[in-house]
Design a binder for these strands. Sequence first.
DNA 1: CGATTTTGACCAGCGC
DNA 2: GCGCTGGTCAAAATCG
Length: 310
Amino acid sequence: MDDDKKRKLESEMISDSSSWVDSSYFFENEERQRSILNEFGWNLPQQQQQTETNQETTSFMEFDDNQIELEQQQQQRSDLAGSFLLPTENHSTSSTTPTVIATTTTVEKSGDASTSNPSVSSSSSDELPEKSTGSDGKPPEKPSKGRKKGQKRIRQQRFAFMTKSDVDHLEDGYRWRKYGQKAVKNSPYPRSYYRCTNSKCTVKKRVERSCEDPTIVITTYEGQHCHHTVSFPRGSVFSHEGSFGGGLNTTSQIYAPAMQYTVSGPLSVTQSHQPQLEVRPAQMQPQQTLQNPSDEGLLGDIVPPGMRNR
DNA sequence: CGATTTTGACCAGCGC
DNA sequence: GCGCTGGTCAAAATCG
């Protein structure tokens, strides 16, 4: 497939959440998913916590944005996309596995790509402190909100979890502050925007319900935390060396009770847009995943090295 | 009283 | 250029 097609496909993937997912992959167990998420700096709660809730399904995506001007980026992206659009053969079975739907990575430039410091500084043109007071001779009656004119929004690496659940907030061990809510086109459900409460952390997340299946909550994370998680009030502490080492827990009331990541089957979100990207089912043998994969191996089978935490 | 949520407005990007 | 949409800001309201 040529680059143009790839670009088009990727842009479709991010413009419509329902089409992000072209095929899905089931981890053999939750442990593996957690391990992988930890490599990204994201944690999931331990499963033992949950007791008697409805079945909840968690899927996982990471995707790229449409900053594709640099050859290098294109290369990386096609790699990534190919890595995560996987065959879906073993869907039907597992009843305890989270799902990886798809992932890619995002590199964007802000006005000038050269300034984009991948993880932290790039975090936001949209969060740059400059309140651009009257940037362009704008009427001062309202101090111009938001970003500086001409400055492109920078999106970082993003992950999307699709969780079948009654509650909206996936407990990920971090504290979030809601900073916005918007109605979403073609969906009766609003999308909420959260930002990590750590002032030095620029991670954001969006939470919305699938319009196709209201029981599915789509949580999209953007960026990576630069700090540890906070402690669970209930005393459960999940720790993970690696990534950022944080324990996993929650504090804010915005969180629902601990979630259980059990999967009943493939989500029905994967329908249109069959991927034509190169598919690399490669090492995705479920059986292997049970075998205490090494750190390298964890993401090795689905996550290209460039995407990992360091 | 500080932290968080709500909510309307602003801004940028994109398609037509 | 215009309108639509997503994303963000920030003041006000609410919560603990």
